[in-house]
Amino acid sequence: MDKIIEKLETWRDIFLKNIPNIAIAIVVVLIAYFASRAINSFISKNLRNRIKQESVRNLVSRVASAVIFLLGLYIAMTVLKFDGTLKTIVSAAGVSGIVVGLALQGTLSNTISGVVLSFRHNLNIGNWVETNGYAGEVIDINLNYFVIREADNNTVVIPNKTILENPFKNYSLTTQMRIAIECGVEYGADLEMVEKLTKQTIQDNFNQKEIGKNVEFYYTEFGDSSINFLCRFWVDSQNALQKLKAKSNAIIQIKKAFDKENINIPFPIRTLEFTNKLNVKNDIAKQHMSSN
């Protein structure tokens, strides 16, 4: 018991002796923390004009912020005279780094993939992309995962490695998208009139001359109950939702134009043919006799 008390008194004396150093270390850590946040904000604002990619700006600011905080932490440990311990930890880290690297192989792969994605010119925050079965607006690219917000406001978090290893479609790289509409008209319709009316309807509602494109119209097949056609045109759009709205509007306008000119879009028709003639009178007579 006396040894325990003696040891506690020794620790108390060491603690009281190092109170100034502990206070300085705490102040250094706090300064490093707030300095790292200030550096993060400062770099993000000042790099906005020089680096257009928001993902790259975020990466640079985060790395700079981490470096500032780690530097402050090192100074604090030096003030507390833990520099010898720190050197020992660093030396041991070199030996155990291989083991840790193997254990965190997936995490390190995502981190490296995050750095690569941040510097890609064909992918940036705010783009509308489709990848790995998901489509939405990119809201964050960090060192671990890739975040998109879908049209229904659901947030999808995807590992960076998955994004880098799989193809993705970026709708925001172009300002124009082509829409294809497939439809059919009755066999008795004036096909030349249908083509002219469809093209004029699209032109009136989606000015192709301003875009510098033409409306494309092709009859594709003699269907079971209709002659089918394909109409393609261009719209100003940077995401799939705008494209979907434009296609919906085009279908409505084409249907109105066809109704006005009495052009029928036929329903699927199925003809049933009975090879054996039914003798209704004999059947009724047999039923009557059997009932008696």
Rank of each mutant, 00 (worst) to 15 (best):
S91L: 15
A92G: 12
I68V: 15
R62D: 15
V95G: 04
S41H: 14
I26M: 11
S65P: 04
I89W: 03
S96C: 11
K81Q: 14
A103I: 10
F42H: 09
S44K: 15
I43C: 05
V95N: 04
L47A: 07
L59C: 11
V63W: 02
I98L: 12
Y33C: 15
K87I: 09
I98T: 12
L104D: 13
A64P: 02
N58R: 08
S96L: 14
T88H: 07
I98H: 05
S91I: 13
I26P: 06
L102Y: 01
I51Y: 03
A76G: 05
I31T: 07
Y33F: 15
L30W: 05
S55T: 04
T88I: 07
A38C: 15
V99W: 02
I39F: 02
K52L: 15
I26H: 07
R48C: 11
T107F: 10
K45G: 11
S36L: 04
L80A: 11
S36P: 00
N58H: 02
S36D: 03
V63Y: 06
T78G: 09
A35V: 05
R37H: 06
N40Y: 10
D83M: 13
S65Y: 02
L73K: 10
I43P: 03
V28S: 14
G101E: 08
G97A: 15
G106Q: 15
L73T: 05
L102K: 04
N58F: 05
G94H: 04
